[in-house]
């Protein structure tokens, strides 16, 4: 509601930080990301500890195909950039451009998720199922948890697109878009460690 008084006037440059509520949302989200870091960190440390316990199943080196991982990495990295563009368009109060960049981000997220599902199905055919070994369980927990975050992000940003289309960029919707952008960057940041520690190190060891 507070956004309506500004709807016909000039929106402040960084509308997500123009209200106390918006600033609190951004700060609160950073604290949440601190907690998320710990969550992913526990999964990483478990994976690092158990990654050689294959229980007679395929090893990381036999299993992983780097071209698929490289494609997924490129897609997610690019989607992180397009979400930056969405926030920049929002700062210029360009509703249409904001929505377009968010749509591109969601589509790239879907492509990433599709690749991951294809990858998991492929692994399952090779006997690398969730309960096959300590390696497979810790692998699916870590990478699957990340994939779940991507899926949630797609859903979240899709709903935001719908809301921005209905209400436009206001003091109320802007913090939501900004925070979703932070979330999407965080997903990409976690993926950087996943492709380095899980996939690339798996190919070395």
């Amino acid at each position: 509601m507070s956004g309506h008084s500004h709807a016909e006037g000039v929106l402040p440059h960084e509308p997500e930080k123009a209200t106390l509520e918006g600033r609190n949302k951004v700060l609160g989200f950073w604290l949440f990301l601190g907690g998320e870091t710990v969550l992913f960190g526990t999964l990483f440390s478990v994976f690092i500890a158990l990654r050689d316990q294959v229980n007679g199943g395929p090893t990381a080196n036999e299993l992983f195909s780097l071209p698929v991982v490289a494609a997924a990495t490129l897609i997610l990295l690019t989607s992180s950039l397009t979400s930056v563009f969405a926030i920049q368009a929002m700062h210029r109060n360009q509703t249409k451009a904001t929505v377009n960049w968010l749509v591109v981000t969601v589509l790239l997220g879907l492509a990433f998720l599709g690749l991951e599902i294809y990858e998991f199905v492929e692994y399952a055919h090779h006997g690398h199922t969730f309960a096959a070994s300590a390696f497979s369980t810790s692998f699916y927990s870590l990478v699957g948890f990340h994939g779940g975050h991507v899926a949630f992000g797609i859903l979240w940003i899709s709903l935001l697109i719908w809301q921005v289309l209905r209400r436009g960029i206001t003091l109320h919707t802007a913090p939501k878009v900004y925070v979703a952008g932070l979330y999407w960057h965080f997903i990409d940041v976690v993926w950087v460690f996943i492709f380095s520690v899980v996939y690339l190190m798996g190919k070395v060891g």
């Binding site: 950073w30 870091t37 992913f40 440390s45 500890a49 992180s80 930056v84 932070l182 960057h185 940041v189």
Partner: peptide
Amino acid sequence: WMHMKDRGHTFPIIGILSGVVIVFTMIIMA
């Protein structure tokens, strides 16, 4: 991309760093 270098990000940095410190400890332990 997450604007952490921008002004007014002291508390976000403290928030995320407190998580990173715990993670660092766990990884070293593992």
